[in-house]
Amino acid sequence: MAQAKRPVSPHLQVYRWSVTMASSILHRASGVVLGVGTIALAWWLIAAATSDEAYQLVQACLGSVVGRLVMLGFVWSLVYHMMNGVRHLVWDMGYGFELKTAQFSGWLVFIASFLSTAAIAVTMLVMRGSL
């Protein structure tokens, strides 16, 4: 069936950037990143169920410098997506739609996600001596 050439999203380049727009994009991006994270979690679980060798391979990858940075990225994505998800649930109940409120909650979630990720990293450093 022939379809009319209608304009399609995304139109990231035609709008002036705003907090609410950035938080919307970050919510989706962090969700996609977490999708990759589920593969890492599945790999870790399967390796643990399989053998010492398989588990050591996962540990070597996730425990490397790059692996630790990626894990930190997963943690930030999870924290951000969860906090911004609560913001979405509050919107679903009909609250917080005023422009000033939405902008404030956008910044609040953004800053809180970095502070929480840092707190998790510091806790692990203090508790276990490494990330």
């Binding site: 999870l78 969860m82 508790m127």
Partner: peptide, 30 residues
């Protein structure tokens, strides 16, 4: 939305659990 609400406490638990068990040896994880 239902899965989102379920995931809030589950992910909080998961993050705490990761802090304690990530990188431990296989016997401890099992």
């Amino acid at each position: 939305r239902v899965t989102a609400v379920a995931l809030i406490p589950l992910c909080m638990w998961f993050l705490c659990a990761l802090m304690f068990h990530m990188g431990n040896d296989r016997a401890e994880v099992l």
